[in-house]
Design a protein around this nucleic acid. Structure first.
Lengths: 184, 184
DNA sequence: AAGCGCATGTAAAAGGTTACATGATTAC
DNA sequence: GTAATCATGTAACCTTTTACATGCGCTT
C-alpha cells in the first residue's frame, strides 16, 4: 500500500506536459478520469501546485479577468521536465496498484516507446504473479465456508485475466511496431 | 476518492467475525490478499486495533509464551457485531473504489443473502455507469495524439467489461438460488 | 554471521478529506 | 430566486506511511 505518496504531485506535473493548466483545470480533468485514478479534492490539488511552484518545477501566469478571481495557469519548467523524467524512468517496484500504473499510462506520451513497452511488460509480470498467487489461495480455500474470500478471489482473478489479455494484445501490437521500425 | 476513511478499522472488525486474531495475524492475512485490498503497515493496524479496543468493539486475550513477546488475540464483542452490521448495511455511495467493494465482498458471510445480492447489483450499476462514461471519453478522443489517455481509457474499459461479466454471471446464479429457496 | 519470520508497538511526517470562506456568472 | 459552475484557497482533522525500537528462533 506504499508509494501512493508523492504521486499526485508528479502526476499533476506530468499533466502539465500536455498543456498549461489551472488548478481548476486539473481538478476537472481528474474528475473526468475519476474511475481510473480517483478525484482528489481541492484541498490536495492546490497545495500540490504550491509545492511544485516552490520547487520551481512549474511557473505560474496569472490571467486577470474583470470581476472574477484571477485564473492561475501553471506551466512546467525545464527543471520540472527533468524531475518528471527521473520519476517516470524510476522502475516501479512490486505491489504497485492499478491506480499507480494508470497514472503512468496516462502520461505515456512522456515515455520513449521502448520505455512504455518495458513499463507494460513490468505490469504484465506483476499481474501474472498475482494471478498465480490468487489461484493458489483459491485452491487452498477448497470446500470451506469462506464464501466471501472465495467471491473476492474469484472477482480479482476475473479482473487479472482481463488485464493480462489487454496487456498481451497491446504488447504484441507494440512489438510488431517496434520490429517494423527496427527493420525499415 | 472519499470514504477510504474509517474503512480499515471496520474491515478488521469484520475479519474478527471469522475468528479471533492477533495484530500480526491480521497483517499476514491482509498481506496474502494485498492485491485485492492492499497491505497496510503495522503502523496502521496496531493503532486501529487499539481504537477498536477503546470503543469496546473488541476484547483482547493475552497469550503469554516463554521468552517471546506476548501474543494479543482480539475477539469481536456483541457491541462490535452490532456496529459492524450498521456499517455493512450502510449503502455505499457512488464513486466507491474497487477496493471498498472488495472489502465488503470479503465480508460476505456477514450479509444476509439478499443484502449481498443488493450490494453486487449496486456495484453492477456503478460499473455500468462508468463504462458508459469511459466510452464517451473514448469517442471524444478521436484521432488526437492523446496516446496515454487512449491507452488508459481502453485499459479501464477492459477491466470494466470483465467486472460486469463476472457480476452478471454471479448475479444470475444468485437469482436462481433465491428463486429456488423462494419456491420450495 | 546475516537475515528472515515471528510479534509487538511508537513517533514524526506526509498526505488527503471535509468543511469552510469568498464571490461573480449563468442556467432553470 | 436558487442552484450550479467557475475559481481560488485555508484550517482542522484523520489516516497512513516510514522509520525506528526490541528481541528470540530458525535457516542459509
Amino acid at each position: 500500500m506504499s508509494e501512493s505518496a508523492v504521486n499526485l504531485r508528479y502526476f499533476i506535473l506530468g499533466l502539465l506536459t500536455r498543456q498549461p493548466m489551472s488548478g481548476y483545470d486539473v481538478k476537472r480533468f481528474l474528475k473526468s478520469l475519476s474511475w481510473l485514478i480517483g478525484s482528489p479534492s481541492a484541498g490536495s490539488i492546490y497545495p500540490a501546485l504550491r509545492v511544485l511552484l516552490q520547487d520551481h518545477l512549474v511557473k505560474v501566469d496569472v490571467e486577470l479577468r474583470e470581476d472574477r478571481p484571477p485564473r492561475k495557469v501553471y506551466t512546467i519548467t525545464q527543471a520540472g521536465r527533468r524531475v518528471l523524467q527521473l520519476w517516470i524512468e524510476r522502475p516501479v517496484g512490486p505491489g504497485t496498484s492499478m491506480k499507480a500504473f494508470m497514472m503512468r499510462l496516462v502520461l505515456a506520451s512522456n515515455y520513449p516507446r521502448t520505455g512504455l513497452v518495458a513499463h507494460m511488460q513490468q505490469r504484465r509480470s506483476e499481474v501474472a504473479n498475482h494471478q498465480h498467487a490468487l489461484e493458489q489461495i483459491g485452491k487452498g480455500l477448497g470446500e470451506r465456508d469462506d464464501i466471501g474470500q472465495r467471491l473476492a478471489v474469484d472477482y480479482a482473478l476475473a479482473v487479472a485475466r482481463a488485464e493480462l489479455a489487454w496487456l498481451d494484445a497491446e504488447l504484441t501490437g507494440a512489438a510488431q511496431e517496434l520490429a517494423f521500425v527496427g527493420t525499415r
